[in-house]
């Protein structure tokens, strides 16, 4: 019937549901925007200069884009609604298919926004390069991070101690993290401190972070690494310098020694039930891991598929 009839009859039927529809769309958009600007805990509650700067960039970018996205959404809904077929007051312009002025505007608005955001991206990429040392009066604390199946090993090379699944750091002191993996990829990430970085076998990545106030910050792996992946989280204890010194002293006085046999034990797939520390670490262990002079993680070692790894919590 409607090949030449313009489908007028069909329009009437659709009128009623469309009204409700647009209110609904607008509400959904609002709810989402509320959520985005809302109260995230980790990245939006920074505890260090890096995450603080990253939060600022994140929010700035969102606000800049919302300035164009919100009008676009409302314009879409408004135009669609005003030009509904059943609106007798709408002025129809069936021949309005090209306008140089409109074209100029629709190309230039996104271009200008992207030039602006591109500038932000360029500058911030350089300011917040993970390998960039932090300006600070305090000398940075070296920490070597090794991801294993499925635990984190933190070596303090200058202090000669190591810790598994707990990262103890002094607040207010820049942390110089050297990140590698003993087996598969992982990503080292403490959201409240800032940038994540991949841990890769045979390579060492550099990451500078700092906690500017004491607290316990959740750290985790952000890259699937096998069956124990969900347990690869750790607490970052940021404490005062005095507390940190006390922790170093107590660590040096107790616990096992991290030598090659102990390291080979770590290479086995397991999830340690509790964090623990090593009172001393063999010199050059991290370099040997990075240079692949030590064997990589063992993997499931001939276990049949579908066999669950031992030690899962």
């Amino acid at each position: 019937m409607s090949a030449f009839a313009g489908g007028d009859a069909a329009i009437d039927r659709k009128r009623s549901s469309a009204a409700a529809g647009h209110v609904g769309l607008a509400l959904i958009a609002l709810v989402l925007l509320g959520q985005l600007a809302g109260c995230g805990r980790a990245q939006l509650q920074p505890a260090g200069p890096i995450s603080d700067a990253e939060r600022k960039i994140l929010l700035d970018s969102v606000v800049i884009m919302l300035a164009i996205v919100i009008p676009t959404i409302f314009a879409t809904l408004g135009v669609a609604w005003w030009y509904r077929a059943s609106n007798p007051r709408a002025r129809r312009l069936p021949d309005f298919v090209y306008s140089g002025r409109v074209e100029l505007i629709v190309w230039s608005i996104p271009t200008l926004v992207i030039i602006f955001l591109g500038g932000i991206a360029w500058i911030s990429s350089h300011d917040l390069d993970p390998a960039q040392p932090l300006p600070s009066k305090a000398a940075p604390l070296d920490i070597q991070v090794v991801s294993l199946d499925w635990k984190w090993l933190f070596i303090y090379p200058r202090l000669g101690i190591a810790s598994v699944n707990r990262l103890e750091v002094p607040a207010g002191v820049p942390l110089h993290l050297m990140v590698t993996s003993a087996s598969v990829w992982n990503a080292f990430w403490v959201p409240q401190l800032g940038s994540m970085l991949y841990c890769m076998n045979g390579m060492s990545g550099t990451l500078y972070l700092e906690a500017d106030r004491p607290g316990v910050y959740r750290g985790e792996s952000a890259m699937i690494s096998g069956d124990g992946f969900a347990d690869m989280h750790f607490d970052t204890d940021a404490v005062t310098q005095e507390q940190f010194n006390a922790w170093v002293t107590s660590t040096r006085n107790a616990g096992p020694v991290l030598d090659d046999p102990a390291y080979r034990g770590l290479l086995r797939q397991s999830v340690p039930p509790h964090p623990y520390t090593y009172r001393s670490v063999r010199q050059g262990l991290f370099a040997d891991i990075v240079m692949q002079r030590l064997p990589p993680g063992e993997g499931p070692r001939g276990a049949a598929p579908n066999v669950h790894p031992v030690g899962l919590k």
Binding site: R15, S17, A80, R84, R91, F96, V106
Partner: peptide, 20 residues
Amino acid sequence: TGVKIFNWLFTMYGGSVRFT
């Protein structure tokens, strides 16, 4: 991509929109 969105918007502008 933004250009595309605006062009759809202007396609509706002055049209006779059927909410199928």
